[in-house]
Amino acid sequence: MNSESTSTSLDLDRLAAYLQQHVPDFRGPLKADKFAGGQSNPTWLLDTPERRYVLRRQPPGQLLKSAHAVDREYRVLRALAGTGVPVAHAWHLCEDREVIGSMFYLMSYEDGRIFWSPALPEVERDARRDYYASIVTTLAALHDVNVDTVGLGDYGRAGNYFERQIELWTRQYRAAETEPIAAMNALIDWLPAHCPADAKRLSLVHGDFRIDNLVFAHDAPRVRAILDWELSTLGNPLADLAYFCMCLRLPSKGNISGLRGLDRSALGIPEEEEMVAQYCELRGLPRIENWNFYLAFSFFRLASIAQGVKARALQGNASNANAHEVGAMAAPLATLAVELID
């Protein structure tokens, strides 16, 4: 995991004293390095003489309603412990904003490999298919979790998931809008009119399931932790599958890189049809209808997220130095979605 050395926004002495009171066997002194990745909830690697931890906090400044829900992240990590879905251990949630200036939680540091490009340049060609198979297997396992059994039956609202999500991300986009984007307006009109019937049983959906939110084992194509649960809720699991498959259509160069224009066969990357078929087989699902809707919705949601990053950057509250570049992706992402519905 890559990090940039900075702890200027954390009072380490106060934080260490607090954690020593609330986390079993926690002992200072404490060092902190802020992770370079991530746009929403600032994240730090904490080093102590005996153990490493990860701290995720809400960003400073005015926050959109329901955004940056670190308490929900903590809850879902606790619920998934022991289910077989690979997650970090959740140590402690601090709702007292006086400690470091915002709500935060502490989880275990999962040592492993994080890949920032879905082309997997760090991996031998013949192994890349196995990494993708592990990703799909992990996603299917997540969606097979019985939410009532793990205490997450109330983790999302009732009603059609996509209708609620389109309403949510339209509202979030409008709240962060800085200039008109014609493609976003077209999607806001088209998506509600084309919602498919919802799944019979809602699943736990991650909401941001992409390759750089996965930690892999050092020695095998095996996912050892799913990161960044801020957008998780109960909903239609096909949203996660389509969101991951966006990487096949995203440009190969840019702040959020994809595989568009690359020879996936030469790279050893499976085609979309193969990944979707593997997922459906693992979960016992029939052929997926209206696939382009799920893809278009995924681009729309990511465009809304990018617009939120742009708004925070203009306000001076972004948690990452590349926030302006990410924010500039809102319009191109919306255009890619419109291509799917035209």
Score class of each variant (00 low, 15 high):
residue 3 S to N: 06
residue 4 E to P: 03
residue 7 S to I: 09
residue 12 L to I: 02
residue 14 R to Q: 15
residue 16 A to S: 15
residue 17 A to G: 13
residue 18 Y to T: 15
residue 21 Q to A: 14
residue 22 H to Y: 14
residue 22 H to M: 15
residue 22 H to Q: 15
residue 23 V to Y: 12
residue 23 V to T: 10
residue 24 P to L: 12
residue 26 F to W: 13
residue 32 A to I: 05
residue 33 D to H: 15
residue 35 F to I: 04
residue 37 G to H: 11
residue 41 N to V: 04
residue 50 E to F: 14
residue 50 E to N: 15
residue 51 R to Y: 00
residue 51 R to P: 04
residue 51 R to V: 08
residue 55 L to G: 04
residue 56 R to H: 03
residue 56 R to M: 10
residue 57 R to E: 05
residue 67 A to T: 07
residue 68 H to K: 05
residue 68 H to A: 01
residue 70 V to E: 00
residue 72 R to M: 04
residue 73 E to N: 05
residue 74 Y to K: 08
residue 83 T to Y: 06
residue 87 V to G: 02
residue 89 H to I: 14
residue 95 E to G: 13
residue 100 I to F: 10
residue 102 S to P: 01
residue 103 M to Y: 04
residue 107 M to T: 10
residue 110 E to H: 13
residue 113 R to Y: 03
residue 115 F to S: 10
residue 117 S to K: 13
residue 137 T to A: 14
residue 139 L to A: 09
residue 145 V to D: 05
residue 155 Y to G: 00
residue 155 Y to A: 04
residue 156 G to S: 07
residue 162 F to G: 02
residue 164 R to Y: 10
residue 167 E to Y: 06
residue 169 W to K: 10
residue 169 W to Y: 11
residue 170 T to S: 12
residue 175 A to Y: 04
residue 183 A to T: 05
residue 185 N to H: 15
residue 185 N to F: 11
residue 190 W to K: 11
residue 196 P to C: 13
residue 197 A to M: 02
residue 201 R to L: 12
residue 202 L to T: 00
residue 208 D to K: 01
residue 209 F to E: 02
residue 224 R to N: 11
residue 228 D to F: 00
residue 241 L to R: 00
residue 241 L to N: 05
residue 241 L to S: 00
residue 242 A to V: 05
residue 253 K to L: 10
residue 254 G to F: 06
residue 255 N to D: 14
residue 268 G to K: 08
residue 274 E to Y: 07
residue 277 A to H: 08
residue 277 A to F: 03
residue 279 Y to M: 11
residue 283 R to Y: 02
residue 283 R to N: 09
residue 290 N to M: 11
residue 292 N to R: 09
residue 303 A to P: 01
residue 306 A to K: 02
residue 317 N to K: 13
residue 323 A to G: 14
residue 331 A to Q: 14
residue 335 T to A: 15
residue 338 V to P: 09
residue 339 E to L: 10
residue 341 I to P: 14
